[in-house]
Design a protein around this nucleic acid. Structure first.
Lengths: 230, 230
DNA sequence: GTCAACCTTCTTGTATACAATAAGTATGAA
DNA sequence: TTCATACTTATTGTATACAAGAAGGTTGAC
């Protein structure tokens, strides 16, 4: 499944507004548009050499995914999720990954564990190379594998959707001292649990693994803005 | 949260296209538009006395929620979810409700259990009156209460979203002999588990309670179309 | 000097005109 | 008769024109 089309038109080409929405999403997540800032229809239309119509369609898609907020008659604004809301999303992510892990342990097919080990090896290589960006990518691959191995396509899509939504907040934590190595160890324990078919253990480990991210995020917040603890 | 605005514009009025989307959704779920049928932009525009623009916006919202499918250059069609996909959604619903139940048992505030008992009493009254429609409504109230008592607003919204999506498939089962009484008993066990703060039990009971619906759905399917078992 | 009301201007929401493509139909050849 | 091809028609995608509302500035009164 494409990273940027939550509900792809089955088999068809992504529409123009899909591409624009994907681009805007990327630009929001990478910081070109700051939270709270307004997205201007006309300037974006000029930039993309289209009329306002496809831009407005793209805005709607972004609004549905929760990335921007549509204020009637005032425009669309990059949404600033509150710390509480972000913590809530991390909690849901933790629970969803726990479910994926449980189902994966129960159902994982031939070769599935090998895929996980391969992905994990790539994580370790990135870690040892000190390449944070590469670790980030390989880590994503690892988690998406588990979503897929749940054997439930719908769950896989929903988990991927939330994973993408949390992208900017997850990324912050990679720079916390020692977190990468710790994360790496957790990955290995998770793979072992799945390979043993130990559903309860896989579930618990994944829940903790992701919940820690929420806690780290909270920790970062309180350091930066002690009043914004949530 | 309004039943028909998945991502409400915070505090603002629902837009015209929101209202149209809600109306179309209702009409799809209640069978005015059969699965697979095409929604015509111009006739709907005439019917609602607007131009094609708001209709198209409504279509986009429906497409994002998965209710219709957008075939580029061909139109939007009422989506016929495959049996497999519906089963997958039921499984995810079961897991989400299990999570809600677990969190509710851990966190439920003063008076929360009373609310559940009240909702359950309404269910029982409907059951004893033999009023299937009323039971359906009160049952929905009961489940939404549990979503809310998870203490996680984001989870509450996601669970409500999926609940609504499964609406037409859940409704079928109410007419299965004895299912209502069985469901009622499960509700009571769930409330007791939550009132005891027994998170694991509440979680398991809810998972089973919802998973049974998926199984009943599957059962109905195989009776109707033995080849469509999934 | 300050506040309020009005007016200007900018932006969005909607309608409509136009362009492009897909489906259906008719025609002709094999 | 059947199949293929071209044409017609209908429908979507996009652009643009127009309407309506909100923000901000200006002017006037107190």
């Amino acid at each position: 499944m494409n990273e940027h089309t939550p509900h792809p038109e089955s088999g068809g080409q992504p529409s123009r507004s899909d591409r624009i929405a994907a681009m805007l999403e990327e630009q929001i997540l990478t910081g070109r548009f700051a939270p709270g800032s307004r997205l201007d229809e006309v300037s974006l239309a000029e930039e993309h050499r289209v009329s306002r119509t496809p831009i407005r369609e793209a805005f709607q898609k972004l609004a549905q995914s929760g990335l921007v907020e549509h204020a009637p008659r005032r425009g669309v604004f990059v949404r600033q999720a509150s710390p509480i809301e972000i913590m809530e999303m991390f909690e849901v992510m933790a629970e969803m990954e726990a479910v994926c892990g449980r189902l994966a342990a129960l159902r994982s097919a031939e070769g599935a564990v090998d895929q996980l080990r391969t992905a994990n090896a790539a994580c370790r290589a990135a870690l040892e190379a000190g390449d944070v960006d590469a670790y980030y990518v390989e880590n994503g691959t690892f988690h998406h594998l588990i979503y897929a191995q749940s054997g439930n396509r719908f769950l896989e899509q929903e988990a991927s959707r939330l994973h993408r939504r949390l992208k900017p907040y997850r990324r912050m934590q990679l720079f916390l001292r020692g977190r990468l190595a710790q994360s790496m160890g957790e990955h290995e324990a998770i793979v072992e649990a799945i390979s043993r078919g130990d559903a309860a253990e896989a579930s618990d480990l994944l829940r903790r693994h992701v919940a820690v991210q929420g806690e780290k995020f909270h920790h970062l917040l309180t350091q930066l803005r002690p009043d914004a603890a949530g």
